[in-house]
Design a protein around this nucleic acid. Sequence first.
DNA 1: CTCCAGGGCAGCG
DNA 2: CGCTGCCATGGA
Length: 275
Amino acid sequence: MGSDVINMEFKNTRTINNLDLKQIAESGQCFRWEEVDESTFLIPGESYECRDREPLLIRQKGNSFDVSCSDEEWDSYWRVYLDLNTDYEAIGRLIMNSGDDHVKECYELGSGIRILKQDLWEMIITFLISQNNNIGRITGSVKKLCNICGHFPYPGDIDIACLENRELGLGYRVKFLQDMYLYGQEHPELLALLPKLSYAEAMEELVKRNGIGPKVANCVCLFGLHHVEAFPVDTHVRQLLDKYYPSGFDYGYYGSKAGIIQQYLFYYELKHKGN
DNA sequence: CTCCAGGGCAGCG
DNA sequence: CGCTGCCATGGA
């Protein structure tokens, strides 16, 4: 994909507040952004619904962003992908009025993070791979998975036997992916159904699948279905909750936006572990 | 060498 | 219900 960059040029400049590409790239929600340089990223554009969408080259200078796509592509896809329709100013005010010093510190560090609306199938597969794994290895496995067919493999795109290739580094998760790809082939209605469901209904449906438990399902809900009330608790979040909130975290205060707060907390925790 | 990573499952009691 | 051992793999 890197060779695409030399053939791309910026067509437009946009002003956007509360958006920091590098923070998002390091926030553990996307595994396929390609860092061209510290302020420029190449973001894959294909999705289950549109497999030939061009990638987005985007360069940040403060709150000014050079982008490679047309106005139409921006309005029909990238604006939603980058969650620009959500009022992050309001979330900042909510945090500042919370009386929670730790959340304020996390927000100070990662206020440019947004919850991306990524491809649903990609999130299902990616977060199946993520279980009991680390971000570097997840990134590697996803990249090698995409190299098989030149884009992220959707149901039917790959022979599931090739998932056993040790080169992919999937470990014991091979069975989970094979089961998921088989189910996706036999039940193509799943990807149309899930977006119609409520958060609770989507959770219930997702955890039926082999290898998807509460944490993976929450990540799919948060990053693939944009249920921003979803609050995934992984090993990092478990540790930070025990460390900073021994008497309990006030989820209720943030209501339907708790998942966004979770991402600020997660990013801060990751940063303070030397990632 | 052990421990850990954006966990979940099966097998217990 | 909750608890425990196990599941591949590679980097620290």
